[in-house]
Design a protein around this nucleic acid. Structure first.
Lengths: 153, 153
DNA sequence: GCACTCCTGACCAAGAAGGTCAGGAAAGTC
DNA sequence: GACTTTCCTGACCTTCTTGGTCAGGAGTGC
């Protein structure tokens, strides 16, 4: 139940691309790497994955670079995480709806389904436009408003 | 963002222990392994971890076995997951409240905090007693009632 | 003393995480 | 056409995690 460096990097780079969307020119990988302090060559692999998933486009050569394939308010954080980490909240690498529990663990399936659903409400609710503007959806606001949410446990 | 086999096994074994709590005798590891189809020797390591975290107690020898250290309605799924997987929703192995994001990713921290908070509402809301009885808290009921929650994406 | 069961550490194979390196292939510039 | 720039791709690498197995030791009860 942890967030990989790759996913973190991917969202941060995508946020930079979202912010640069008004400029008509593509953004170079190096600028993204500098802005977010990400190892360039690692970032290039990540951007390639995002490109393969249709989230990002790119052009080579001088004046080349990366840009978002869609408007920033149509790209969710969930998409980006899935592109680089694969499906969210799988249990033992299989989706929770496919697991059959026996005996006293029968209802555990519903718990994992709920875990996935709650992750979805957050990750699918936040777009890159939200992220850049800082105007996060109310569901995030509610979850982060409690001081308790900000302390370790 | 996935659930490990270990966490899944741990919760299932704990559910069996919760169900056996009315019997006064401890439950043997082998019975837990059989009931939930878990490799015995692997399960023993998991139970040991749960013991070290004060969730489970054990006695050796004939008539030995495992039992819950507390009533089943005082043990949450979150505790068990943390015992075997470590802290929930860490980013790059550091807690989200300790990360400082720069530039356009500034508000990403709030998103990861929200992710953790939403996981907590589910995992800390479900006790072993809930799990065994099948009477899951309303928050789980709401999240699993939509058909959409049960399909992959 | 013996059987039973947990306890513990060592080990192991496969895969993922988090990168680095080297070169190729488009695109633009002169 | 040569050259530079920047992305594209695959190979490689080290360390850690996952998901176990194995062997033996140590309490407990009869």
């Amino acid at each position: 139940m942890r967030v990989s460096a790759k996913a973190d990097y991917a969202v941060r780079a995508a946020a930079e691309l979202a912010a640069a969307q008004k400029e008509e020119a593509p953004v170079k990988g190096e600028r993204l790497a500098d802005a977010q302090d990400i190892p360039l060559q690692f970032l290039e692999h990540i951007l390639l994955e995002l490109k393969h998933h249709g989230i990002v486009r790119a052009r080579r050569g001088a004046k080349g670079g990366y840009w978002l394939a869609r408007p920033a308010d149509e790209v969710t954080v969930a998409e980006i995480v899935r592109a680089v980490e694969g499906p969210i909240a799988h249990v033992q690498s299989t989706p929770p709806e496919d697991i059959e529990y026996r005996g006293n663990a029968e209802h555990l399936q519903a718990v994992w389904i709920a875990v996935r659903a709650s992750l979805r409400t957050v990750l699918e609710g936040v777009t890159l436009a939200d992220l850049v503007s800082g105007e996060l959806p109310t569901v995030v606001g509610e979850l982060t408003s409690s001081k308790d949410a900000w302390v370790a446990r």
